[in-house]
Structure formats: C-alpha cells, structure tokens
C-alpha cells in the first residue's frame, strides 16, 4: 500500500526519511557535495574550505527541561558544522511564527538563542520572520543556516571510518529525546529528565588539537545512536560493533525508556558526538574529552570491523550480537 502523500515517518530521521532524501532531494539536486551525505558540506571558497549547513527546528514543546527551540536551533547548526571539524563562524535564522504565540515565550526563545550563540562564539548575521495564521504552524518553527572554516589538515566525514577505529561518545545517550517526550506527554517521573542540548564546537576543537586524524564526527540526533551509526557504516563500508555493557545511559533515562518500551539507542541526542578515531589515538582523545565539561562521561562504546560491512550490531551482555538496524519509523514490535 504505497501512499501517495508524505507520511509522518518520513520525517522520523529513520529509514523512511533516508529514502525520501535519497530518492527525491539527492536525485534532484545531485552534486558531489550532497552525495557525501554529511551533516554539512565542505565547499571551496578562495584558497580555503568552508563548511555550510542548514537545519529546521519544529520541536513540541518549544520549551523543555534543559533548553528550548531557540537554543536548540543554535546548538544543532553549530554542531552540524563542528561535525566536519569546522570552526563555526556565522549563522542566519529564519522564524515562522504562529499567530497567537505569546511574546513572552518568543522573548525567552530569542534570548536563549542569543546566549547560545555567544557561548558558541558565533554571530547570527542575518534573519527572516514570517507570521502565519493560527493553525498553519505550531507556535514557532526556526530554520538556521551556518558557515564555518575548516582548519587545514582536518579531514572528517562519515565516509572516512576505517576498520579498527575506536567508536567513542562524549556522554550518556537518549537524554534529549526523552526530555522532550516526557515533557510533551506530561509523563511524570520522579526526576525530571533534562535535554543534553549543547554546542559541541569547543569540545571538538580540543579533540582535533590532540588528534587531527579523527576519521568521523557525527551527532546522533533524530533516530539516535543506532540510526547515525548505520549511516556511517553504510557511507564507510565498515561493520560497527557496540558493547552493550559500555553504553552510557543515565539511570532516569534508562528507567523511562524501560517503561515506555523505547530503546535509548534510537532516541535523539542534541549534545552528543560519536567519534571514530584510529585505535592508537583513543587514549589521548578520551583524555581531552573527559577534561571538557561536555565530555566528562566520555567513553568507548565500540569499534569498527572489516566483516559485516554496512551493519551495526550490539554485543549483548550474554555475548550474542543483536543487529541494530535503521528503523523505518516508530519502534514497532517485530515479535510475532
């Protein structure tokens, strides 16, 4: 039953999104930059290389524990630039506002945007505002674009993972997605789960200082760690093996996932980075990560292997290898 209209799961960040992007946008816009399928594109300007990206934010609720749509719109775009090893410099912001949005809310959103930009050392240099009638948008949508410069000698991208790389992460997984979900649905857990939303450019800069040979940096946003790793496995033609034991998940997030029946590996993050480094650099990279406030819980979660190219799997506590596929949409049960 192929439906001829856009389906919600095509925006889930999972396989359905992937297919839509591949089959429509990439096919239509087709060029070498886009075909790389990375968080931002590297383009030559003059003698140097700059990174360019854009992203739209449609989160519900617009304000959530640990941030709001404004800070998120800065963090997300800054991170997309940082994931190519670029130093983010300038951003633009486009706002689509729904008639009736409280000005207080808008004020709060914009001021946290400004604070986030300051913190990340980027300037918001251009913008655009549209207001649409009630019901034509949900409170506020923000689009941000960004540019940054890539330091010479840095070559980071989803296609550069190699067998034998260590796969690192800077902290716990699933925080953002669960914070937003719990807030949206009014699920009252004992502790309020906070989003991890943050700009990672500072951390990334430190990491590249000690190890310019980092192969891949990628922020596991929508679709979570599992989906992001699937993209990398496909782009780089490697297998990726994770260790269940090693996965850092906050206790409250784990508890909420447990009762909600969600797998934290498929839940969104907004302040996390997956790092693929040659095994020999692992120690030094982990050291600088742990020295940084956003990397205190950094750890190795797995490694790449030459077998099973394109596949991501989890070595479970009892020693089996569970496949972590890219899901199509929701986590629908596969058990008969």
């Amino acid at each position: 039953m192929e439906s001829m209209t856009v389906q919600l799961d095509q925006g889930s960040g999972g396989r359905a999104t992937h297919e839509l992007v591949q089959d429509l946008f990439i096919q239509s816009f087709r060029n070498e930059y886009l075909l790389e399928m990375n968080d931002s594109a590297l383009v030559n300007v003059g003698n140097g290389q700059i990174a360019m990206t854009t992203d739209s934010y449609v989160v519900d609720p617009v304000i959530f524990p640990g941030g709001n749509i404004g800070s998120l719109a800065v963090h997300g775009t800054v991170n997309d630039l940082a994931m190519r090893g670029a130093r983010p410099l300038y951003m633009t912001a486009g706002f689509i506002l729904e008639e009736g949005l409280s000005l207080e809310t808008l004020g709060e959103i914009v001021s946290s945007m400004a604070a986030a930009a300051r913190e990340a050392n980027v300037f918001i240099v251009a913008g655009d505002t549209k207001v649409v009638p009630r019901g034509k948008a949900d409170k506020i949508f923000i689009n941000t674009s960004g540019v940054g410069v890539v330091p010479p000698g840095v070559r980071v991208g989803g296609q550069y993972a190699e067998p034998g790389d260590a796969v690192l992460i800077n902290g716990t997984i699933g925080d953002h997605g669960m914070a937003v979900l719990c807030k949206r649905e009014g699920l009252a857990f004992e502790n309020e789960i906070r989003s991890d939303s943050a700009s990672l450019n500072g951390l990334v800069e430190k990491m590249l200082e000690v190890c310019p040979q980092i192969h891949v940096l990628r922020d596991p946003t929508r679709g979570g760690v599992a989906t992001t790793l699937n993209e990398i496995a496909e782009q780089s033609h490697v297998g990726i093996r994770l260790e269940e034991e090693a996965l850092p998940v906050r206790e409250d997030v784990a508890g909420a996932c447990e009762i909600l029946g969600l797998d934290p590996l498929y839940v969104a993050n907004e302040g996390k980075v997956l790092v693929f480094v040659p095994a020999r650099c692992m120690k030094s990279v982990l050291r600088v990560m742990r020295d940084h406030p956003l990397g205190r819980n950094a750890c190795k979660i797995g490694e790449t292997v030459s077998n099973d190219a394109g596949r991501v799997f989890l070595r479970t506590r009892i020693g089996g290898h569970r496949l972590l596929d890219m899901l199509r949409g929701e986590q629908l049960p596969r058990i008969c």
Binding site: E185, G186, L187, A188, F189, I259, L260, G261, E330, P333
Partner: peptide, 18 residues
Amino acid sequence: VQNRRILVQMLERRVNSP
C-alpha cells in the same frame, strides 16, 4: 503504583502504544 500511573498516561496519550 508508579508503573501503573505511567502506563495509564501512555494509554491516554497514545505514547508508543500502537
């Protein structure tokens, strides 16, 4: 009680409840 409460919320809000 805690699990029950969350589950009822999930049912009401159709959270991961196909």
